[in-house]
Amino acid sequence: MTTESTVTPQVMQQQRDRQAQQDRLRRWLTEAPAYALLGAFSLSAILALIWVLLMSLRPVKELFTYGAWALPKEWTLQNYVDAWREMRVGQYFFNTVLYSVVGTVGSVFLAACTAYILARVKFPGRNFIYYLFLISLMIPGYLAMVPRYFLMKNLGLVDTYLVIFLIAWTGGLSFNLFLLINFFETLPTELEESALIDGANAWQIFWDIMLPLARPGLATVAIFMFMGQWNEFMTPLIYLRDASKYPLALGLQILSFGSTYSATYTKLFAGMMLFIIPILVIYLVFKRQITEGLTVGALKG
């Protein structure tokens, strides 16, 4: 008697559970291929990095004795030490940091100044200059490769740090301007007006009022410039001669294929890790800005 009244909710509960279970199962079944595909790709990216890491932690002789699939039997950091010192990866690393930081700071500053003028100041010829800057977006970089090389050569700039900076500063200018002008245009005028009334001069208006407001836009530009500079390959390939000025991308290329260091794969893998880690950390820290900035950049351009 008492059982009947208690069983019914239990049965209902069981039915509900079963229903929910079936739903879960169905959902899981429909989503399984999605998970499989996405998972496989994600795994390939992660495993590739782990493989490079493992390879960099074993002596080279082991690689040839046990093959690429074997885990290191003897763990060593010697490859990193050798790569850093002997193979000049330390020098390349320093150069890469220099090119990335100076290239980024310079081009962001240049683009911010220029974008501010073009976005907020009315003066004769403004539109003409604006379009002049945008022309470059249409032209593939290879067109000017040879004339620009000889321009730099005649200026005595080939094989200097400055040439890398100059090309970084001007290379991304058009695109950065395009992004930042759009950004500055969205800022309200009232702030500038009231700053002027408070006695600020033009520089103060720009530096103290507008630039802080433009920070999100500047951050986007900066992150992209930095990642681009970190990975830059062609400019140093064309303009640099002296290996002591090479960035990592070019230095590793030389280490990999120059017969000087053949068969020192594990050291090369150590060099690769040193190249990957900073950019990976930056990516994981600034993930949101990078993914958002990316879509802003690409979809507008």
Binding site: A45, I46, A48, L49, M227, W230, N231, F233, L248, A249, L250, L252, Q253, F275, I276, I279, L280, Y283, I290
Partner: peptide
């Protein structure tokens, strides 16, 4: 991740 890695 593969996209942020240098092409090299």
């Amino acid at each position: 991740i593969p996209s942020i890695l240098s092409v090299v």
